[in-house]
């Protein structure tokens, strides 16, 4: 075992050692092939969708499909509905998760596992089974609760102008993402030391939360909000099965009669979602380089 060296040396002397420039070449080819294939697979549908929307049979290039989006029946209503739902969901989800996340870090670390489980559940339960449960509750409501004030509530949450029930459902779906980004944000700023320092300087608890923690959490809250908004704007399953016409449902409905417009809207909504997410990731990068 002790002396491998001389043996190897002779091998080198006879010139069997690989030339230095020769080795890295093979992986480079392999890598190029993988990257090119990936680029084709991921770019072709995007390019093709765009081509599909701008090429009118027998007329050639035209951006009409994009112009028609705005005049199409139901566009404004459904988009506004989705945006409204998004804003309401963001407000509610932040109001619920931020105090919980702070409390778990400061006061009750023993509740952390509970919170983790609660925030993983919506990931385990597919949205369609969740909506199956909700719709059953809503269907049974009238039978069992007709005489109680709860019945009025049940009707109210299903108001088609602003279905609160969707907000409630979306908050549940958004919980895991919101909690994770807030918790990561709290982890990055060492809440305990910050709040102890503020308390030491005479700040009251509400003051600590409003003036110390929230300003330092701005990017984490922004990321939670963006993710929630993207989720709400793209959510189809629950809204469709509860028969509310949100934006994705509107796209789906018009696809039957106006294929080109529906693809145009898809491309359009994709762009918006991407811009949101890109803004989010670059904001995250800035935050990291800043600290």
């Amino acid at each position: 075992m002790a002396s491998l060296t001389p043996q190897v040396t002779t091998q080198v002397a006879t010139g069997t050692a690989p030339a230095r420039g020769g080795r890295p070449r093979r992986p480079r080819v392999w890598r190029g092939v993988v990257l090119v294939l990936a680029a084709v697979y991921f770019l072709v549908p995007l390019i093709a969708s765009f081509v599909f929307t701008v090429e009118v049979p027998n007329q050639g290039f035209s951006l009409d499909a994009y112009g028609q989006i705005f005049s199409a029946e139901g566009f404004g209503g459904s988009l506004l509905l989705s945006l409204g739902l998004g804003v309401a969901t963001i407000v509610l989800v932040l109001l619920l998760t931020l105090p919980a996340a702070v409390a778990v870090r400061l006061g009750a670390p023993r509740l952390r596992p509970v919170l983790e489980v609660v925030c993983t559940l919506p990931l385990v339960v597919p949205p369609i089974t969740f909506v199956a449960g909700i719709s059953t509750v809503l269907r049974w409501g009238p039978d069992y609760l007709a005489t109680t004030p709860l019945y009025q509530t049940m009707i109210a949450v299903q108001n088609p102008d602003f279905p609160v029930v969707l907000v409630l459902a979306y908050v549940v779906l958004a919980l895991p993402f919101a909690y994770r980004s807030l918790d990561a944000g709290l982890g990055a700023i060492d809440v305990r030391t910050l709040s102890e320092a503020a308390r030491n300087l005479g700040a009251s608890w509400p003051h600590v939360l409003l003036r110390v923690i929230i300003p330092n959490m701005r990017s984490a809250m922004a990321s939670a909000s963006f993710l929630t908004l993207a989720l709400v704007l793209g959510e189809f399953t629950i809204a469709r099965l509860l028969s509310f016409e949100t934006f994705p449902n509107w796209i789906y409905r018009i696809s039957g009669s106006q294929a080109q417009v529906s693809v145009a809207v898809s491309v359009f909504s994709l762009l918006i979602t991407w811009l949101l997410l890109l803004a989010l990731s670059s904001a995250g990068a800035r935050q990291r380089s800043g600290s």
Binding site: A2, L4, T5, P6, V8, T9, V12, A17
Partner: peptide, 13 residues
């Protein structure tokens, strides 16, 4: 005294 400059890392002692 033996030149090991070109010996691969997994054959050095």
């Amino acid at each position: 005294g033996a030149d090991i400059t070109r010996v691969p890392a997994n054959r050095r002692d």
